[in-house]
Design a protein around this nucleic acid. Sequence first.
DNA 1: CTGTTAGCGCATTCAG
DNA 2: CTGAATGCGCTAACAG
Lengths: 347, 347
Amino acid sequence: MTIKEIAQLAGVSSAAVSRYLNGGYVSAEKKEQIRKVIEETGYRPSAQARILRTKKACLVGVVVPKINSESISRVTAGIEQVLSRRGYQMLLASTDNAPEKEITYLKLFENYPVDGIILIGTVITAEHRKFLKNSKVPVVVIGQYTKYANCIYHDDYGAGKAMGRLVAAELEKLGGKAAYIGVTKEDKAVGVAREDGFRSGMKSEGILLEPDYVKTAEFTMDSGYHAAFELLKQKKDIRIISCATDTIAAGAIEAILAYSTQNIPRSVADSGTRMQYILNNSGIRVTGFGDNQFLKAVTGGIPTVHFGYKTSGIRGAELLLDVIERGEKIPIEMKLGFRLEEPKTEK
Amino acid sequence: MTIKEIAQLAGVSSAAVSRYLNGGYVSAEKKEQIRKVIEETGYRPSAQARILRTKKACLVGVVVPKINSESISRVTAGIEQVLSRRGYQMLLASTDNAPEKEITYLKLFENYPVDGIILIGTVITAEHRKFLKNSKVPVVVIGQYTKYANCIYHDDYGAGKAMGRLVAAELEKLGGKAAYIGVTKEDKAVGVAREDGFRSGMKSEGILLEPDYVKTAEFTMDSGYHAAFELLKQKKDIRIISCATDTIAAGAIEAILAYSTQNIPRSVADSGTRMQYILNNSGIRVTGFGDNQFLKAVTGGIPTVHFGYKTSGIRGAELLLDVIERGEKIPIEMKLGFRLEEPKTEK
DNA sequence: CTGTTAGCGCATTCAG
DNA sequence: CTGAATGCGCTAACAG
């Protein structure tokens, strides 16, 4: 079904059909004929061809590192909110934490019909910079700092520092050592800033984060589990495990449960109250970043940091639309704050 | 930058450039000239226009109800796996659990350059059926049964029944009543089949699921929290709360924690061991569906059902590619089984 | 191997 | 108000 065929069937020109579709001048009579034919044939104009012509898709592409994440879904919720209010739709591409796929999808969006791109960033490689510099369509980066595009990022250093202070204070009461499970240093926000901040926060309270007590994990629960388990095996004086994300923290919690299990007397293990026993006796605290609601719900909450993820989505989308619609040219970088979350039931 | 300009700059025809880009015959000499010009200009061909011409995008669109879900990410992981192996890419559209948005995005994908669509289904309305019947591009539906498209769904009834049996058996030991938190009946798989199965499973063990012990929730933790809290307030003899999804179950767990809190003696509440106290004393069990790994990690696991979500993604993508590439015409519907998961630490 | 010529499906001049 | 003509950027014959 093309616009031409419809035109023939309705006995008008294709231009008339086009006008009908786009609210141009068409006499009531022809309008009716066209309406009928479209109705009957179930014709749908090819947005595809339309965009080739008009260069306007009312669509933005969002590249995300993964799909199953509360923080990312909060960002996309923010984006979607302003987009839909302004008549745009949103397409997502997930890279499964593979930076090279990010490039692939960025290029895909660049050449497919989207008016702009939002990248929820993990690492900014040379390839990324090259893309950002040359992109045919406007891009905004959320979650990482870069000077090659409009960007919105969080105060990861400040958040890390606040958490470091909190942990240090706690440690003075509890005794023992703190461990830290971070992520790749290639991620400047989560891997570097957050950890540096944490270290500095501890230090400001006079406590050193010892190298042997630091491990690196992927952004998964599973990876957090393994890192924490290793830590537990190697160091017996750990009282707090701080994790770079709440997801990793969930893995750490699992590891603590699993590890403690090994040391429970058989009688307790068999009694069916193992879990309670563990919770009562392991005495190892876990902290995270991200304020994951799921984790809070089922555990009652751990110390964590709330970032304005939804806000960053909102601001990011606004920034993007500003350059798409108003051709705003002056570059912008925005840093968003945070809020330390200490569960009420703690302490 | 168009192919024409590149051709001019390189002193060749646009066809030569096109061939260069697509691996056709080009002399080494011209190849070099073209390469240089493209290098210098940073030219990227418009996939957009290419597709208009070739009708082949090597892209499939996936419509999902939400982004932040373990089960859905398992499905998309399966889809992505086979897609990338066969040279396709995947675009996601999230509808935020709004069926009317599903239609919007289905239409969007129908007219934008994708070779096929996968719908991870929630409800199949008349609008949906109409779309499926008339779609210009092939569609496969995952998670719901429909005769209007190739579909892959899970044995929700069987899973519900198995869980119903398990709960009934447990109840005979524990005493008390079972409650059920379901979802909208418009969702035939999760809302109807799962619940009907559950009811029937209980009944087969001689126990009736009483209407007063049944509530409906959204697909969110928050909604599960409220439903469970209501239940707890209204009925004092509940020993098991079965939930239609693990996410709802997480909310129920939170509710049990919160509710029990209200009845804890002050001294205990203040002593800082409140959470342990609750776990020891509430004695209310929760079950779910979906085998959420996050939930399992931080709680040690609740009785739940493992569906082959990733498998359904794999099969779904294969089905779609079969019709895209081989023009496979005979309709297929597939039902996938399940596995009951009982945590080892339970009982 | 190469350039010329037609469109893909649509929106937009520009004369009527 | 309307239709014929033109071209968006690219690829696929086709004839060199």
